[in-house]
């Protein structure tokens, strides 16, 4: 069992993407490759950018339990008022800065869900959002 977590600050575009890069490098050292790594790379980057763009800050952690690689994002708010809509492709609440950087196509959460073998999301307005994604180490879904 190995776990590592990274804190991600709201609006910190300077370090945005660092946590997912570190996690990816760690997985490569552990010998995780192929389609699993490809799916995790996309999901980790999306979820990290979500923390930077939408949350008030939070943590991103990675955990391996022998069967699954778990990617968990937990933030301290503001929560997603309408999860149903957020899960829909094309729905976005990204601000102008993020949109100017090419984000905000409304593909974030749907993209995570598509890439993960297990996808759970809980959110409470004014409290925070928790996204838990599981990737089967022995392969899992193909793209």
């Amino acid at each position: 069992m190995i776990a590592e977590s990274f804190s991600v600050e709201k609006g910190d575009y300077l370090r945005a993407g660092e946590a997912s890069t570190k996690m990816k490098n760690m997985l490569k050292k552990l010998g995780i490759g192929g389609s699993v790594l490809r799916r995790i790379s996309v999901a980790a980057y999306e979820v990290e950018m979500n923390l930077v763009i939408h949350s008030l800050g939070g943590t991103l952690s990675i955990d391996l339990d022998g069967d699954y690689i778990w990617l968990v994002s937990e933030d301290i708010g503001p929560g997603i008022p309408d999860i149903e809509s957020a899960m829909r492709e094309g729905y976005s609440t990204a601000d102008e800065i993020a949109q100017g950087m090419g984000f905000g196509a409304g593909m974030g959460i749907p993209n995570m869900k598509r890439n993960a073998d297990v996808f759970e999301i809980e959110s409470e307005p004014n409290k925070g959002t928790k996204i838990k994604m599981g990737f089967l180490m022995g392969g899992g879904k193909s793209e």
Partner: peptide, 18 residues
């Protein structure tokens, strides 16, 4: 693929090394 970055062939051993 070239596995020279990998810590060990066994994922569990690689995790211990990590």
């Amino acid at each position: 693929e070239n596995y020279s970055m990998q810590l060990d062939e066994e994922v569990s051993t690689a995790m211990e090394k990590m």
